[in-house]
Structure formats: C-alpha cells, structure tokens
Design a protein around this nucleic acid. Structure first.
Length: 345
RNA sequence: CCGCCCUUAGCUCAGCCUGGCAGAGCAGCCGACUGUAGAUCGGCUUGUCCCCCGUUCAAAUCGGGGAGGGCGGACCA
C-alpha cells in the first residue's frame, strides 16, 4: 500500500489524530508500526464497541501490528463495574467477542496480539513506574484526565484515580507507537503524553474514534438497554429499538441512526462493494439506492428521506451485520453465562 | 479507637419529633397528535421503608442489637 493510501486508511472515520504530523512521520519511517486499544471488560459489548473494532481491520490493512489489551484490573478499579470474581469470565467473553467481530469484518483475529492487564500490571518495572506517577500526579489532575471515562459519583474510590495512571503506563508497558480509543479517552492519553517522557518513555501518537450518540438522544448509556444496539440483540429487538429511536427529520444532531450508518453500515457495505437500498412505498417516492453515506445524509437533511423509511432500512442492515456475532455468541453460551450470571445464568 | 449523621419506588428525596391505608418530583409504561422518534397533552404503574429482636390493638415512625456508607476527632512511634 502506498504511504498516502496507508495514512488515509488509518485515519478514515476517526474523530481526531494527535498529532497528524507525528503519524505521517511514523508511517514514513516504519514498515510495521504498532497500535493498541484497551477495553475494560465490564458490561455486555454493544454496537459502539463494534465500530472501534472495525477500525482494527483498517489498521491491519495498513500494515500496522495490532494489540488489544483486556484491561481486567481497570474493570474492577472503575467503581467495581465488574466484581473481582467475574474479571476472568468477562475477560474471556470480551476477547472471544472481539475476535468474532474482527473476523466478521474481514480481518484476521490470529494476527492480533491479546494481552491481559493483570499479566503485566502487577510487577516491576510497571509497579515502580506506577509509584512514581502516584507521587508526581495531583488528585485533581488524575480526576480531570479520567472524568469522561471513569464513573463519576459522590465519594469516589481511589481506584478511579489509579485507573488513569495505569492506562498511561499501559502504553509504555505494551511498547506501542499508537494509542487508539474513543474520544472520551482523550484526557487520559493527553496525560500520558505529558507524563511518560518524564519516566523515560516515548509519548504515544493518539487516534480517537467518535462516540456514537444514544438512540434515545444525547449520550449513549451502557446501563440503558434502549440506548444502543447490543451484540446479543436479535432482529426484532433491533427493529424495536430503531423504531423507538430519537430521529428528527432533517437533523443530524444526536442522531444515533445516522451515525450507525456512517460508521458501521456504509463502511461495511463499501468493503463488500454493495450499495445501501432503502425500500419505500411508491406513494412516498419508491425505493432509493445510496452508494455512499454522504448522499444519504444530503437527502435526509433536505427531508427527501423520511425518518421512518430510514429506520426500516437501517434496522434491516444492522440486524444483518450483528447476526453473525450474535450467532457465534450463542453457539456456546457458557462464555456469556459465566460473564453475566445475573442475566444469563 | 471515640463521637455524630445517613440508609424509604429505577434516581433524588419528603414522611419519623407526636405510632393509625407508604408519598412527591424525575424516570418508566400506555394512549392522543405527528407518515418515525422527540416535544406537548391525557392516563397509569412502581416498594424486603437496610437486616434481626423487642414494645404496642397497631411500627417506615418508639427501644435494643447488627450491617453498609459518610463526616469529624484522637493517635502520629
């Protein structure tokens, strides 16, 4: 792949690159730079995870070596989102589901290096570095860096502060060039860029993915079922959720459905060389076919495309995308049941 | 280690003093209006009153014990 193409594939569908100059230089100098993303194995995986994992395949295509960190300790440190006893079961569920998503996207899961946080976060030099950061970082700085990631509450536990410092050190410990994550991770990685050089490590280049809006308007909430499509949702559940979704005619703001199309459906269809077909009753203008997201958005903004027609077609397309992942998950439900015994046990 | 405060609907809380059908707001659900949703309007639902024991005809409410959480004090080799 040509350097210019490489960069285009790496950066497409992203929210921000820090910094573009550093990335350009890295891709010019190195044949196989490395990138990592970390997931704390907490709640069930959803469509937002899918969009970030889709990107991993882009990275592979561009010749980057990809590491996925299953940040088990983080899942516990963030207000005990995952109880101590479930860390292992949820880590297994996350890794397996991520592999499934990569495969469904056309990538190679075996080419991904999976690391478990507790395998390297409990011994020197990691722990020595952690104590140095604990000594150097103010509580306010750590709190601010993690405020978009760590659960906010009255009387927060110390874990939330350690969380941000550990995530900074993960970048160094995994020895990667690029840190990739949702834009909510920005505060933490900016802290990492600031502090890692003081410990003698390189500062990472950062790639940030957009966060999908919730289907009910505003931010997506992992705790509200109707707020996002889950990877265990069947076709009927997806149709219901999209029908109930906030979707004002002509507006792209807080419009989760359009974002699903932009970041998940269209990229997938374009990979396959397919178009997006919206079936529509003749009285409303008949079927329409879109080759790219931009032309669909133009029609929607001009109100030439009605939300109900959009919802119907989007639900069908998303259900089709989710189906292989859902099927694989339920092929051996033990993994899911062990991870979420309250829901599936 | 000591003292004080808190625990009631999914959430925030009122009710406790002075025992008498367990409440409000928000959220949620259902309709109306929209070729979707939201907004608006109309209606509806929601409970281990933290746990145990006691007093009483009757306990969210009073008494005792316990658990969890918060605040403060003391200690600072």
């Amino acid at each position: 792949m040509e350097p210019a193409d490489r960069r285009r594939v790496v950066e497409r569908h992203l929210e921000e690159t820090v910094t573009a100059e550093e990335l350009e230089e890295l891709l010019a100098e190195r044949d196989d730079p490395s990138v990592y993303i970390g997931y704390a194995p907490t709640g069930e995986m959803h469509i937002g995870h899918y969009t970030t994992i889709r990107k991993l395949v882009d990275f592979q295509r561009a010749g980057l070596s990809v590491t996925v960190l299953i940040a088990d300790l983080h899942a516990y440190l963030d207000d005990e989102k995952t109880p101590w006893d479930l860390l292992d079961a949820r880590s297994r569920y996350y890794q397996r589901t991520i592999e499934t998503m990569v495969e469904a996207t056309g990538g190679d899961p075996r080419a991904i290096r999976f690391e478990r946080g507790s395998d390297f976060e409990l011994e020197p030099p990691y722990t020595m570095d952690l104590y140095r950061l604990v000594g150097e970082t103010t509580t306010r700085r750590a709190q601010r860096a993690g405020s978009e990631v760590v659960r906010q509450r009255d009387d927060p536990r110390l874990g939330g502060l350690l969380y941000t410092l550990m995530q900074s050190l993960d970048v160094a410990a995994l020895d990667v060039d690029i840190a990739y994550g949702g834009i909510d991770q920005r505060g933490i990685y900016m802290l990492a860029r600031e502090t890692l050089p003081t410990l003698g490590y390189d500062k990472p280049i950062c790639l940030f993915a957009p966060l999908l809006s919730g289907l009910e308007g505003g931010k997506m909430s992992a705790s509200e079922a109707g707020s996002s499509v889950r990877l265990t949702d069947d076709r009927d559940a997806i149709v219901d959720k999209l029908n109930d979704a906030y979707c004002p005619a002509g507006s792209t703001e807080d419009n989760g459905i359009l974002e699903y199309l932009k970041y998940l459906v269209f990229p997938t269809l374009m990979d396959r060389g397919q178009a997006f077909v919206i079936e529509r009753p003749a009285e409303y203008g008949g079927d329409v076919v879109y080759e790219d997201y931009e032309s669909l958005e133009v029609d929607f903004i001009n109100e030439d495309l009605h939300p109900q027609d959009l919802k119907n077609a989007a639900a069908a397309a998303i259900a089709e995308l989710i189906a292989p992942i859902r099927e694989r998950t339920f092929e051996d439900p033990d993994v899911l049941e062990a991870a979420y015994p309250e829901q599936y046990g």
